[in-house]
Design a protein around this nucleic acid. Structure first.
Lengths: 211, 211
DNA sequence: AAAAAACTAATGGTTTTCCGGTATATCCTT
DNA sequence: AAGGATATACCGGAAAACCATTAGTTTTTT
């Protein structure tokens, strides 16, 4: 690992759990190549700080009280183009990890990561590389096998209305289209999610996080 | 607070996230009336340890890799009748909190609790009282307003089958009962969850964590 | 053992969904 | 401007779900 002038890597932590922040600080304090310079429990504060504040690596939790971690990641990389973000959360959810990476995160860790993994991740990300924990990798690999179908805006809209208990006729009335059209959408939805009735459609839709 | 012979309160922590454990230790190390004696990332290890090990207060996370936190709570209180358990998790979910209390937990904290709250909770629980964080209290109060309907075993079973796309006839065949019986169950389910068709039933059931 | 809850079953309709196709207009991107 | 994706619409028939109500039997709880 290349250190800039033998200075430690400056890290900021954004996480809404004080005990996680303490834990990270405590774990990282064992390494003198690292230095946790600032911590934030609110995403917006961190965003404002980084307007002119500096750091090498950001440890960013997904679950923040005021702003979505994924959104914050996007805004940070848009403004601070050289920023290096390492995503963290307890959710080993492929779609979330994908979104984080898409929005500019350089790596991703589950919160049950070992201290070793954590250190490795920080160093890799600092060096401009990417890092994903072993568990994360296997989740991504597994999820890329089963293709998630794409639902159109209209389909999602109708899906929500079905889930709220409205019948084909009622939906048609609200959207000012023929009930036959809604039927077609229904059928397309069921086909896409590979089910053969509405209850299973709703279950599957929620499993796939469309609802 | 009454201390036993001026000895610190002995605490064990059960949590699958190393960084949370570190965080808790670090936070609690500031108080010399407390002492974190052992920590575990696996529930079963902790259970075995407490067969003859002692401690004053257990900080127990709900999300453990090997055993459900609620179940562990139940087993611990059944065996170690004098144990004092303080539940913790990120989920501010009324039903989970209720279950924990029902299984013998003396208090409950969200993981975004402040160090102050944490200390208070430990002291209260140690003194034989109960403690619930401010946020937890409001969640419990709110949830007690809207009554969660009770589903019978059979109803839950049928609910799962409906969600998996099976028709009334198919369910009847599998359970060796009349389709008319299944119809009745369906109707009772819809009535209990206050919806008027199966798609809405599934949505509501998942919202209420029956699925 | 009594009471309550849960499970079972039925009658007889009405409404809604599901399935097999087919087809046109429109929007969006290249 | 072309092509693909999206939204719209139709027919006809079979299958399934929904509704209002009642009631006997079994299991569980008190």
């Amino acid at each position: 690992m290349i250190l800039k002038m033998n200075q430690p890597i400056e890290i900021i932590i954004i996480d809404d759990h004080p005990m996680v922040i303490e834990g990270l600080k405590s774990l990282l304090s064992a390494y003198d190549t690292l230095s946790v310079t600032y911590t934030f429990t609110k995403g917006k504060e961190a965003y404002r700080f980084l307007e002119d504040g500096v750091c090498d690596v950001v440890l960013l939790d997904i679950n923040l009280p005021d702003i979505n971690g994924i959104e914050l990641c996007e805004k940070l990389t848009a403004r601070n183009s050289h920023i290096r973000i390492l995503g963290m959360s307890t959710y080993n959810d492929a779609s979330i990890i994908r979104q984080m990476v898409h929005k500019g995160a350089r790596g991703y860790l589950l919160k049950n990561a070992s201290p070793d993994e954590l250190l490795q991740a920080i160093e890799q990300v600092y060096d401009g590389k990417t890092y994903f924990g072993a568990e994360v990798k296997s989740i991504l690999a597994e999820s890329s096998l089963k293709d998630i179908p794409h639902l159109t805006r209209r389909e999602k809209e109708i899906l929500r209305m079905i889930a709220s208990g409205e019948t084909t006729q009622q939906i048609a009335d609200k959207l000012y289209v023929s009930p036959l059209t809604i039927e077609t959408h229904r059928r397309n939805l069921m086909q896409k999610l590979n089910v053969n009735n509405a209850p299973a459609l709703i279950k599957m839709a929620i499993d796939h996080k469309f609802l």
